[in-house]
C-alpha cells in the first residue's frame, strides 16, 4: 500500500498510523522513535521510546533517567515489528552520519518501504557511522541547507582559519559558538587532528555531553571547564567553546579581548554572520550541502521524495526536474533556522 495512505503529518509530528508510531514527536505520545538527540527531535515525556543506544544515552544525559516510561534501545540493522500481529509494520534503524547515535528509520508495511532520513550528512565524521543508502519507495529527506548557494568547504580548511587566527591574534580569547551536541565534539576532534593539543576550555552547558562522548571512546584531549579558571585573563590566546546563545551573554564579558568565532553551516551567508556579530565565521555543518542532498536523492533512487525541515521548495523543484515525484511535508515545531545547522 502506498505510504501516503498510512503516513501523515499530525500536530505532534510525522505519524505512522498502522503502527500508532510518531517519528521525532514534539509532544508527549504513547509510542515514539527518536532519530537523534538534538532537542528539536528528542524530547522527554513519551511513554515508550525506540532509538539507538547512543541516542538513549544522550537523552538520559539531557533529561535524566525519567526521560520516558520505558525505552527499547535498538542496534543499526535490527528490526522490530509494530502494530497488529496479522498486519504488522516492520521498523529498522540505519546510520545517518549526522551525530553520534543518529539514525534513519525504515518503515515497511504491506509491501512498500519508506525511509525517514532524520538529519543526515555525507561527510566523514569520526563520531558516527557513515550514512547508509537504504533503497525504498518513498524517501523523506531533510533540506536544512536545501539551496544551491550552500556548498560546505572541507572542515580542515575551516579549522585552519581558527588556527591561523590564533597565531595572528595571539592575545585574544577565541570564543567559539558551537551547538552543544555533535558540532562541539566534531570541532574539538578536527582541532586535535590539525595538531592543536593545548587544553580547550568549555562552557558548562557542553561538559556533560563531551564527557558522554569520551565515555563512548572518542578522545577529545584535555578539556577544562571555564568555571575552574579563577583568573579569566589567562584565557588570552586560548580557545573557549560555548553554545551560540552564550556568545553575546554577560558570561562572555569576563574574557580578555574576545574574538567571536562561530561554527555553523549558516556562516556561509555573510550577512547572517554579521547579524550575529561574528568576526570569524567557520562554515562547519552536520547536514548535507546542496550537492550532497542531490547526490543522496539520486543514490537512494526512491520513486517519490518528500522534503521537510528547511528550504523545501528548492529541493522539491530540483527533485522534480530530476524526474522524481516530489512534495514538501510541512512539519510544525521546527524553526527554519535553528542552531543545529
Amino acid at each position: 500500500m502506498h505510504p501516503q495512505h498510512w503516513m501523515s503529518v499530525e500536530s505532534p509530528g510525522l505519524y505512522c498510523r498502522p503502527a500508532d508510531l510518531y517519528i521525532d514527536p514534539m509532544k508527549p505520545v504513547a509510542l515514539a522513535v527518536v532519530t537523534h538527540g538534538h532537542t528539536d527531535h528528542a524530547m522527554a515525556g513519551h511513554s515508550h521510546v525506540y532509538a539507538t543506544d547512543k541516542t538513549m544515552a544522550i537523552m538520559t544525559t539531557r533529561y535524566g533517567e525519567e526521560m520516558a516510561e520505558s525505552t527499547q534501545p535498538m542496534r543499526y540493522g535490527e528490526s522490530v515489528m509494530l502494530g497488529e500481529a496479522d498486519d504488522p509494520v516492520r521498523m529498522t534503524l540505519y546510520p545517518a552520519g549526522h551525530i553520534m547515535g543518529s539514525a534513519q528509520v525504515l518503515l515497511e508495511y504491506r509491501g512498500s518501504r519508506l525511509v525517514v532520513s532524520g538529519d543526515y550528512k555525507r561527510r566523514p565524521d569520526p563520531t558516527c557511522l557513515p550514512f547508509e543508502v537504504v533503497p525504498c519507495d518513498v524517501f523523506i529527506t531533510e533540506a536544512t541547507f536545501g539551496l544551491p548557494v550552500f556548498t560546505h568547504p572541507p572542515i580542515e580548511r575551516e579549522v585552519d582559519k581558527l588556527i591561523n587566527s590564533l597565531q595572528v591574534f595571539k592575545h585574544r580569547c577565541h570564543l567559539v559558538g558551537s551547538y552543544a551536541l555533535g558540532k562541539c565534539q566534531r570541532v574539538i576532534l578536527a582541532l586535535r587532528q590539525a595538531g592543536y593539543h593545548k587544553p580547550i576550555y568549555l562552557h558548562g552547558a557542553l561538559i556533560r555531553l563531551c564527557e558522554l562522548y569520551q565515555q563512548h571512546g572518542i578522545d577529545l584531549g584535555k578539556l577544562v571547564p571555564v568555571s575552574e579558571i579563577e583568573d579569566k585573563s589567562t584565557l588570552a590566546g586560548e580557545i573557549v567553546i560555548a553554545p551560540p546563545s552564550a556568545l553575546a551573554d554577560r558570561w562572555s564579558r569576563a574574557f580578555p579581548d574576545v574574538r567571536t568565532v562561530m561554527a555553523s553551516g549558516w556562516m556561509q551567508i555573510r550577512a547572517r554572520a554579521r547579524q550575529k556579530q561574528v568576526e570569524l565565521p567557520m562554515i562547519i555543518s552536520d547536514h548535507c550541502d546542496w550537492p550532497e542532498l542531490i547526490q543522496t536523492i539520486e543514490e537512494v533512487g526512491a520513486k517519490e521524495v518528500w522534503v521537510t525541515h528547511g528550504r523545501e521548495n528548492a529541493l522539491v523543484y530540483q527533485a522534480t526536474q530530476m524526474g522524481f515525484k516530489a512534495r514538501a511535508l510541512s512539519l510544525l515545531g521546527y524553526e527554519d533556522e535553528q542552531e543545529t545547522g
Binding site: P148, V149, R270, A271, N313, Y317
Partner: peptide, 24 residues
C-alpha cells in the same frame, strides 16, 4: 549557468545579488 527558478529562490534567501552569484 543555473536554473532561473533556483536562482530566484537563492536570491530571495540570501537577500543580496553579489553574494548569491558569488556562491552559485
Amino acid at each position: 549557468r543555473i536554473d532561473p527558478v533556483l536562482f530566484e529562490m537563492s536570491y530571495d534567501y540570501v537577500g543580496e545579488m553579489s553574494e548569491t552569484v558569488a556562491h552559485l
